[in-house]
Write a protein that binds this DNA or RNA. Structure first.
Length: 581
RNA sequence: CGGGGCGUAGCGCAGUCCGGUCAGCGCACCGCGUUUGGGACGCGGGGGUCGGAGGUUCAAAUCCUCUCGCCCCGACCA
């Protein structure tokens, strides 16, 4: 490709609205342009890299038996109503009506459509197992897109769906994806870890998320270096400390004026935080049929810990949780700052298991300026649910081995879910077994966002001067920089390299060497060839890897072979990253 | 949805408090000439109804009201 004719431009200045390295560099180097919040156009470079990523995904998913299909982005709402997700999912799913007034949605994932296809196509166990996938646009009206391609509203996703007759089959396909995903990320050059994850709106029984560890990540992960336990903070388990257990003393009201936080309470009464119970009020939204009802949720956790909203929501099957307003708290007779689970009516009380087994805690008295000592679960109050609802933190003990956990941030680049029969059951996607008995097909779903993956790779591979693409997803292999008065020779080199099957970006522009070199660094193609009169006089051209500083002079006649060798070497290095997991 | 910030030429910005040569600067772009191995120089030039709509005023980028959009933090979310 001749650069003089390319539909792009590089920017000298950092775009004002970019914060992260990948965002700044992808815009500056002319890969992407923003159209709206979380909506981007891909320019030629990004389009080419994206295709390479997608082809890597095709290779790996085909390898485990995937068949590529393409499902529509615009869906009639009926099928989403059948699974109830039309009602369960909030405004991140965009809805509209067609000309006849029929409800339509923009697909944010495709479980429904797959299940619909399955009920139309699959009838017998003989057809299973099966794996289908597509690479398609998704629309999710995220309330807060950010960081360029890291978090967008419109994006392309590779999503595959496994179809099985039994749990074993699902396990097999899940494992196959588990490895295939590591292969995909390795081939793209991106280091990732797989962590246990919440199933979220997908439902199902098990999920892993593939995380690119980076401070720009929005997810917090808990990692055990000793045994390898890794989980998203949303669900991370930990080994809870032994509760303080003594014989129950009698309730005692103590005056605690202006003591509203646990910190103040512990200081005022001279007790440890672990001897206190903390009240956290949330408003929960619950789906009952097609109706949403909201209820106040009173979560009780130990004073030294933090509430984990995901665990709480899962424990009570809430669709949504948000902090309650003061009026909502007062409406049930509780007093913010001095709240107590004792003596409340019409409130969903959820107690952390550690609280349930602790004795003689300090809690609020539901009376302005007073707390209660020696509060005991069971004797003094009951709960609707007792569950693990507190958040794991760095330093807490690993659930597997007891070693201290550490925290890290991560960007979720892929996920795999064991869905089970949630969708197939709802849609009646059944097959007949050997005995002629009907069962719902067992599904798994597996997704990778290709644009986010591209952005993470940019995030991982760059320096002060620009991007440094891994050869496998670089838009071109070679950046051919022609300096002054060498047009004929450079044209010839361009032709020779191209004929040899190399992808060459040919900088044939009328620019000064500095501009060309800087653009080459910014764009970040792996191999740079400089053709200049100076070295050409000796019959040489200069070859340099973007990832290394060293330039080498190569005789013109050896150039094609040399570059093919370099490309091979870079590709081999990438392939060496693939490991069995 | 809550908090904060910002919309002036393709990009980055100044000007807004205090209304009146404030339609400006740098980069980019076009022409001519010189230059040519790490973001060249000179001369000449093109481009903006100051996000939008109302209003106040003799006069609005500037003041007021409404509105749209974008970014960041939080909430939320795969």
């Amino acid at each position: 490709m001749k650069m003089s004719k390319m539909f792009f431009r590089t920017l000298r200045e950092v775009p004002a609205d970019a914060e992260t390295a990948s965002h700044k560099l992808l815009v500056r180097s002319g890969f992407i342009q923003q159209l709206g919040a979380g909506i981007y156009s891909l320019l030629p470079f990004a389009k080419r890299s994206m295709e390479k990523i997608e082809n890597i995904m095709r290779e790996e998913i085909d390898q485990i038996g995937g068949q590529e299909i393409l499902m529509p982005v615009v869906n009639p709402a009926e099928v989403w109503k059948e699974t109830n997700r039309y009602y369960e999912i909030g405004s991140e799913m965009s809805r509209f009506q067609d000309r006849k007034g029929g409800d339509m949605v923009l697909a944010m994932t495709h479980e429904e459509i797959v299940a619909d296809l399955v009920r139309k196509i699959v009838q017998s166990y003989r057809q299973l197992p099966m794996l289908v996938y597509h690479i398609q646009t998704k629309w999710r009206d995220d309330p807060r897109p950010r960081a360029g391609l890291i978090r967008v509203r419109e994006f392309t996703m590779k999503d595959s769906y496994s179809l099985d007759v039994d749990q074993e089959g699902l396990d097999t396909q899940y494992k196959a994806h588990y490895q295939a995903y590591f292969n995909i990320f390795a081939k793209c050059g991106l280091p990732v870890v797989a962590v246990l994850a919440d199933v979220g709106m997908m439902g199902g029984t098990m999920a892993h998320e593939y995380m690119y560890l980076s401070p720009i990540g929005e997810d917090t992960l808990l990692i055990c270096d000793s045994c390898g336990y890794m989980a998203n903070r949303q669900i991370a388990l930990f080994d809870k400390p032994e509760p303080i257990h003594q014989s129950a003393l009698s309730l005692e009201e103590v005056e605690t004026p202006n003591v509203k936080t646990i910190e103040e309470l512990a200081n005022f009464l001279n007790v440890k935080k672990i001897e206190t119970a903390k009240a956290v009020f949330m408003m929960g939204t619950f789906t009952e049929g097609q109706e949403d009802v909201t209820k106040l949720v009173f979560a009780v956790i130990r004073g030294d810990m933090e509430l984990n909203e995901t665990k709480l929501a899962n424990a009570i099957k809430a669709k949504e949780l948000r902090p309650a307003h003061d009026e909502e708290i007062e409406a049930v007779g509780a007093v913010a700052g001095y709240a107590s689970p004792i003596g409340l009516k019409d409130v969903l009380v959820v107690v952390d298991e550690l609280i349930a087994s602790s004795s003689n805690l300090v809690a609020g008295a539901n009376k302005e300026g007073f707390h209660l000592k020696n509060v005991n679960y069971g004797r003094d109050y009951q709960a609707s649910v007792v569950a693990d609802i507190v958040a794991a933190e760095a330093g807490f003990a690993c659930i597997e081995c007891g070693s201290p956990l550490k925290e890290s941030r991560g960007v979720e680049v892929g996920n795999i879910f064991k869905l089970g029969t949630k969708y197939t059951e709802a849609l009646g996607a059944n097959f007949l077994d050997q005995n002629g008995k009907s069962h719902p097909v067992i599904m798994g779903s597996y997704g990778i966002g290709s644009g986010r993956l591209l952005a993470c790779i940019a995030e991982e591979y760059h320096d002060d001067n620009g991007l440094i693409w891994p050869i496998s997803i670089a838009p071109y292999h070679v950046h051919l920089v022609a300096l002054r008065d060498v047009k004929e020779q450079a044209d010839q080199i361009y032709a020779n390299l191209s004929k040899a099957g190399l992808e060459v970006l040919y900088d044939d522009r009328e620019e000064t060497p500095g501009v060309k070199f800087n653009d080459a660094d910014l764009i970040g193609l792996p191999i740079r060839i400089t053709v200049g009169a100076r070295s050409l006089k000796e019959g040489n051209v200069e070859v340099k890897l973007r990832s290394e500083g060293e330039r080498r002079l190569i005789p013109l006649e050896d150039l094609v072979g040399e570059v093919i060798g370099l490309k091979q070497k870079l590709e081999d290095e990438i392939m060496d990253q693939i490991v069995e997991n």
